[in-house]
Simulated assay, not measured.
Amino acid sequence: MRIELTVNGTRREADDVWEGESLLYALRERLGLPGSKNACEQGECGSCTVYLDGTPVCACLVAAGQAQGREVTTVEGLAGEELDPVQQAFVEKGAVQCGFCTPGFLMSTKDLLERNPEPTDPEIREALAGNLCRCTGYEKILDAVRAAAVAKR
Rank of each mutant, 00 (worst) to 15 (best):
Y138S: 06
A59Y: 05
D16G: 10
A151P: 07
R2W: 05
A148W: 03
Q88D: 11
R30K: 14
L33T: 08
G69S: 06
P103Y: 03
K140I: 08
S36A: 15
K152Y: 07
L24Q: 04
C60Y: 00
R28Q: 03
K93N: 13
V145R: 06
E21S: 06
V150K: 15
L128N: 07
Q68A: 15
D84S: 07
R70C: 11
Y25Q: 12
Q66T: 05
M1W: 11
E82P: 04
G130A: 07
S36E: 11
V72H: 06
I124S: 06
Q68N: 08
F90D: 02
S22G: 05
E81D: 13
G43P: 09
E13L: 04
E76C: 10
E139Q: 15
L5F: 01
A95L: 11
A79V: 04
T10A: 15
T74E: 07
T120H: 08
A129E: 13
L23Y: 03
S22W: 06
E71V: 11
G32F: 12
G99L: 12
N8V: 01
P56W: 00
E76F: 13
V7G: 09
G32P: 04
R115Q: 15
V57G: 08
C135V: 11
R125S: 09
P34V: 14
V72G: 01
L61H: 02
L33H: 02
V7I: 14
L78V: 12
A67G: 03
G99N: 03
D16A: 15
C98V: 10
D121H: 05
A129T: 06
A14L: 03
E139F: 13
R134K: 11
V86F: 03
T120K: 14
Q87M: 05
A79N: 12
R146W: 00
N38K: 15
P122G: 06
L83Y: 14
D143N: 09
M107Q: 12
V75Y: 03
I3W: 08
V72I: 15
C101D: 08
E29L: 11
I124H: 08
V50D: 11
E139P: 00
L52T: 00
E92I: 10
T102G: 03
C101L: 11
G46Y: 07
G77Q: 10
E76N: 06
S108N: 15
C58Q: 07
G46K: 04
E19A: 14
A127G: 01
T73F: 09
E82V: 07
G69F: 02
A147Q: 11
C133H: 08
R12A: 10
K152H: 12
E82D: 14
T6D: 08
S47C: 12
N116A: 09
G54S: 00
G9C: 11
L132T: 08
L132G: 08
P117D: 06
C101H: 11
A129C: 10
K93V: 01
L112M: 09
V145W: 07
V145S: 01
L61I: 07
C133A: 02
R2L: 04
V7A: 14
R30Y: 02
P34E: 14
V62Q: 00
A79Q: 03
V57R: 01
T10H: 15
P85V: 01
V57N: 06
K140S: 12
D111A: 15
Q66W: 15
L24I: 09
D15L: 13
G99E: 09
I141P: 05
